[in-house]
Design a protein around this nucleic acid. Structure first.
Lengths: 361, 361
DNA sequence: TGAGATGGTTTAACCGTTTACATGGATGGG
DNA sequence: CCCATCCATGTAAACGGTTAAACCATCTCA
C-alpha cells in the first residue's frame, strides 16, 4: 500500500523527499543528509539521489524544515514605506547582505503607524525569522516603548535578534542590537558649514518634536549655533513633516507671511529641500545666488538640485544590521554601533553678503 | 511525565499551542479551533483559552501551520533592486494590497541577473508562497524563456500563482497571470506631443535591444514618427542603459561628437532625462528654451525637473498583481491585464522654432 | 579467523499545527 | 423515561522534513 494517496482530484502535488528517496532507492534520511551536504556519503548513492532530485525537480519544503528544528534562513525588515528613498536604500543594504549570507528577506511596511508596526512584529515572530530589523524613527512615546520592550523580549525568547536601525535604544534591559548613524554630528557639521559662510539667520525646516531623527538633527543645528555664538531664534524653526510637499508648504507660508528674514536654509532632509527650493523659485529666488541651502540624507533629489547635504550611509546601515544580527547568533552579545555621517559639498551655499560677516565673539 | 522537557541549557522556548492548552485546561484541538475562530465553542472555554494566550504571549508557529496544510498567507515579489523608483513603487503597491488582504510579503532582488532570478524563484517555491510576482523587463532570451516556463509549471504544480508584472507573457501554454502597462501607447503619445510642437529631429535615449520595456517604448516612438510622416533616422537612436549616469553619458557624448542635430529629446525614462538634462546644462543648454525633452515613468525626478512625461500606474500594477493572483486562487483562471498610461504635461516642451514647422505631407 | 573499528544507511522519534473522526453530556421529542 | 440529536470537546493521524541512535557490511589487525 502506498504510504500516500494522490488526492482524488488528480491535481499534481509537489515532489517530497519521500518521492526522491523512492526513486533513488534509498531512505529519506539518506536523501536528507546528502542534500544538507554536511555528512559523508558514498559517491554512487550521492549521484543517484542528485539525479532523482533533478528529474523530479524537487525543492525542500521550507515549513517542514523549519518545523524540524532548522532555523529558517531569513531576516525580516520592517519599514515605514518602500518608496521613501531612505528606507529603500536601507532595505537594499539589508537585501544585499541577506543574499550574501544566503538568507531570504521578508518585508513589512507600517505606513508610520505604531499599531501596525507592532502587529507586523507579531507576524515576523510567527515566521521565526533569524532577525527582525526595525528601521526608521519613531514616536518616542512611553507606552509604545513599553510594548516594544515586551516584544523584544518575546523575540529574544524565540531566538530571534531584534535590530533597531536608525533609532535609539530602548533601554539597558532590552535585548536588542542598535545600529544608528550620527544625525546630530551631521547636522552640526552642515550647520557649521553655513555659519562659516557668514550666515547667521538660518531657517530650519522639519519636524520639531515627537520623532527621534529630526529631533537629533535639530539638536545638532542648535549646538552648532551655540558653538559659533550665534543667537538661537526659535522663530526660525518651522515645523512640518519630512515630505517634499511639506517643504514646499513651509517655505511658501514663510515667504507669504512677511519679508524674508533668513539668508540660508537647513532642510531636515533632501526632500524638504527640494520642496522648499520649488517654493523659492516660484518667488524668483535662486539657490545659491539668493538663498543658501543645505539638506540631509544625500539621496537622489540632492544630486539633481546640486544640494550640499549630509551623506548618510543608508545601505551600510542595512548591511551592518544584518551582519551584526547574524554574528550575534554565535557570539550572543548585544551591540550598539554608531555609523558616521559626512558633509557632501555641492553648489548650494554662497558666502553671506547681506550682512557684513562680523567675526564671531 | 511531561511530554516535553525543557532543553537542558534552560534557554526559554516560545510557548506552543500545547502550553496554552495545558494552562487553559483543554485539549490542543480546542485551542486550535478557538483561535481559528471558524468553529462553535462555549464562551467560558473561549475566554479561558484567550486568557492563556495572552498570559503566555502565544503566537502560532507559521511553519507548523504551513506544514499542516494551511497555505501560508504570503506573497513573494521579485525585483531587480529596491532602490530603483519604478520597482520601489510597484513593490509598495504589492505591499499595500498584500497587507489589505492580510498577507505577508517576501521580497527578493536579482540585480538584473537572470541566474539569480531563477534561483530566487526556487527559494520562493520552497516557501510555498501563494503568489510569486516577477517585476520588470527581462532579456528576451529563448533559453531563459524555456527555463522560466518550467518554473512556471513547477509553481503551478505547487499551487502558487506566477504573476508577470510589466513584462510580456511567456506563451499560451504557460500558466501565468500577466499584468502589463502600455509602454508603446505611452511612447506613441508623448512622441506625438513633441511632433505636434513641430519637432522633427527627436533624439531617443535608452536601451535599443534586448530588454522588453525599452523595446516597446522605442516601438511607440517609431510608430509615432511614421504616423506623422516624419522620416525615421536610426542615427537619432542612442543606446545606453536606463540609468541616470547613462543619460548623462549619452547626451554628453552626443554633444561632444559634433553640432547639435536634434531639437527635442525622448528619454527612455525619467532618470535618463535627469542625466541628459545635466549634460545639456553643462553646455549652457536649457530645457525647454533651447531643447525640448520628454521622459517616461512619472517618478520623483520628473516633478523636480519639470518634465513632461508618461505616467505609469506603478502602484496600481503591484496592487493588481496581488489582487488577480489571490482572486484566481478561487476562480482558477489565468488572466492578462493591460493597464493604461497617460501623458503628464509639465514645462519641458516648447514649439520648435529652429526649422519652420512645415505641415506634414 | 574473529574481535573491533569504521563508514554508510536505515529506523524511528520528533518538531507544532490542523482536522477527520470518536466520544460523551445535555437536550428534546415521543 | 428512553433514545435520537446535537454540540462542544477530546483523540490521534497526518503534514514533510531532520537527526540521534541502531544497524550492518566491510575492512583492519592481532
Amino acid at each position: 500500500m502506498p504510504r500516500r494517496v494522490t488526492p482524488e482530484d488528480g491535481r499534481p502535488r509537489p515532489a517530497t523527499i519521500r518521492d526522491v528517496a523512492e526513486r533513488a532507492g534509498v531512505s529519506v534520511a539518506t536523501v536528507s543528509r546528502i542534500l544538507s551536504g554536511t555528512y559523508p556519503s558514498a559517491p554512487t548513492t550521492r549521484s543517484k539521489v542528485m539525479r532523482a532530485v533533478r528529474e523530479l525537480d524537487y525543492v525542500a519544503n521550507a515549513h517542514a524544515r523549519g518545523l524540524a528544528g532548522v532555523r529558517p534562513q531569513n531576516v525580516a525588515i520592517v519599514v515605514n514605506s518602500v518608496i521613501s528613498p531612505h528606507y529603500a536604500h536601507v532595505a537594499q543594504g539589508v537585501q544585499d547582505q541577506a543574499v550574501r549570507e544566503g538568507r531570504l528577506c521578508i518585508v513589512g511596511t507600517t505606513g508610520g503607524d505604531p499599531e501596525r508596526e507592532l502587529a507586523t512584529i507579531q507576524l515576523m515572530r510567527e515566521q521565526h525569522a533569524e532577525a527582525v530589523i526595525l528601521v526608521g524613527n519613531i514616536v518616542a512615546d512611553e507606552a509604545y516603548r513599553e510594548r516594544m520592550a515586551d516584544y523584544a523580549r518575546a523575540l529574544a525568547a524565540a531566538g530571534s535578534r531584534l535590530v533597531l536601525c536608525g533609532r535609539p535604544p530602548l533601554g539597558p534591559d532590552v535585548p536588542a542590537i542598535v545600529v544608528e548613524y550620527d544625525n546630530t554630528g551631521g547636522a552640526h557639521a552642515v550647520t557649521s558649514h553655513l555659519l562659516s559662510a557668514g550666515h547667521k539667520r538660518i531657517l530650519f525646516l522639519g519636524r520639531r518634536t515627537g520623532y527621534t531623527t529630526p529631533e537629533s538633527r535639530i539638536a545638532g543645528y542648535r549646538a552648532a549655533l551655540a558653538a559659533h555664538r550665534v543667537p538661537h531664534d526659535p522663530g526660525l524653526e518651522v515645523d512640518g513633516t519630512m515630505e517634499r510637499r511639506e517643504g514646499y508648504r513651509m517655505m511658501r507660508e514663510r515667504l507669504d507671511s512677511g519679508p524674508r528674514d533668513f539668508t540660508a536654509v537647513f532642510a531636515g532632509n533632501d526632500l524638504i529641500a527640494a520642496g522648499a527650493r520649488e517654493a523659492l523659485r516660484e518667488r524668483g529666488l535662486r539657490i545659491p545666488d539668493d538663498v543658501s541651502m543645505v539638506g540631509f540624507d544625500d539621496l537622489p533629489p540632492a544630486a539633481d538640485i546640486d544640494l550640499t547635504t549630509v551623506h548618510v550611509p543608508h545601505e551600510e546601515l542595512g548591511r551592518t544590521a544584518v551582519r551584526l544580527a547574524l554574528e550575534s547568533e554565535s557570539t550572543g552579545s548585544a551591540q550598539h554601533v554608531l555609523l558616521g555621517t559626512h558633509i557632501v559639498v555641492r553648489d548650494s551655499v554662497r558666502p553671506n553678503l547681506e550682512e557684513p560677516s562680523a567675526a564671531a565673539v
